[in-house]
């Protein structure tokens, strides 16, 4: 019985859709919903069925009758030309906000950088976060007892039974991938390595045990200091989406020679001096330099033939600046009122 009713509804709706003028529409309505119409006939036939079924079918039939009447009214409006003139049709009502989730602010920045580097033909690589002492320090010209080891307070892991792997550390920078990439891909090489790094240090609004860096390495014949400074300007301007001035100054990192710090003109005050840039007009963004000959050697290449530049940029800082985030700890875990804004 129900199936029969539903089929009838489908038939009528199809017929309404087929109707090409108002006259045939009215004929159709009389044929089905009229006093002697077919739906009415079916309802009359209900007397044959059980009480329980009568109730169910009756409800369904009434529903169908209402639906069909509405469909006829709507179709009539089309033919009478009233549809577009309906004064209750409010075009300013909002669209329905479909449920959507949120990208993490850090990956928004990260993907922007990844796309920039891919567009320049750079390889984007991943590396291990639990790293050997060798790659994290020694291969980067930081031998045992070097003060730079103290500069980077390190998380160590407990020895793993039955595995003679030497001292392992949570990588303190993404730089170990410089050597791994050189060993795997040789030269010329253009590569960036975004990723998580770890430092054993107290947490506050600007420091965390876990943060993100993007390491870059470009190796070829005759890569120069001038190439490096020009590239830094290009990169920072691309990331911030505006032409920026940069300031290049000496800095010390054992795996580059010379070592440089790259500042960009403060995007908040335009270099005039404000609290964000500690009144200097400059924001410290990047550590960089020409790759140290010992590091090129550790990568299995000849520093007489190849030279290159390397740089590391802090992604948390970049994301915080871009989105005006004032506490680095918001970038870890899931504080939804924060995440929902992205």
């Amino acid at each position: 019985m129900q199936n029969h009713l539903l089929k009838l509804k489908e038939q009528v709706l199809a017929a309404i859709a087929e109707a090409r003028e108002g006259k045939s529409l009215r004929a159709l309505e009389i044929e089905y919903l009229g006093r002697k119409g077919r739906l009415t006939a079916i309802l009359r036939g209900l007397s044959d069925v059980s009480e329980q079924e009568k109730k169910i079918v009756g409800q369904l039939a009434n529903q169908i009758k209402n639906d069909l009447s509405a469909a006829f009214r709507q179709a009539e409006e089309v033919f009478s030309g009233q549809a577009g003139k309906n004064p209750s049709f409010d075009v300013t009502l909002p669209g329905q906000a479909g449920a959507r989730g949120h990208f993490h602010p850090l990956t928004i920045v990260l993907e922007k950088l990844e796309k920039f580097f891919i567009s320049l033909g750079f390889l984007v690589l991943d590396g291990p976060e639990l790293e050997s002492d060798y790659y994290n320090f020694t291969a980067l010209n930081i031998p045992p007892f070097h003060p730079a080891r103290d500069m980077q307070d390190t998380f160590y892991v407990q020895p793993i039974a039955q595995q003679a792997v030497g001292q392992l550390v949570m990588r303190t920078h993404t730089s170990p991938m410089q050597v791994r990439a050189m060993q795997k891909y040789g030269a010329p090489l253009r590569v960036v390595v975004p990723g998580r790094v770890f430092r054993f240090e107290a947490t506050d609004t600007r420091h965390d045990t876990t943060f993100y860096q993007l390491e870059g390495l470009m190796l070829d014949r005759d890569i120069s200091l001038a190439n490096l400074t020009a590239f830094m300007k290009l990169m920072l301007s691309a990331v911030m989406g505006q032409e920026l001035n940069i300031r290049v100054r000496p800095g010390y990192f054992p795996f580059v020679e010379p070592g440089l710090e790259v500042d960009m003109s403060c995007v908040l005050c335009g270099g005039q001096g404000c609290p964000s840039c500690k009144q200097t007009g400059w924001l410290e963004m990047i550590g960089a330099g020409l790759v140290h000959p010992e590091v090129i050697k550790a990568g299995g290449l000849d520093p007489e033939i190849y030279s290159g530049f390397a740089f590391g940029i802090g992604l948390d800082r970049l994301a915080m600046m871009k989105f005006g985030i004032n506490d680095i700890r918001l970038l870890r875990g899931a504080h939804l009122p924060f995440l929902e804004q992205f």
Partner: peptide, 11 residues
């Protein structure tokens, strides 16, 4: 999926 992305600690 209407999911929100997070980056939890490795520890």
């Amino acid at each position: 999926g209407a999911l929100s992305e997070v980056l939890n600690y490795s520890f």
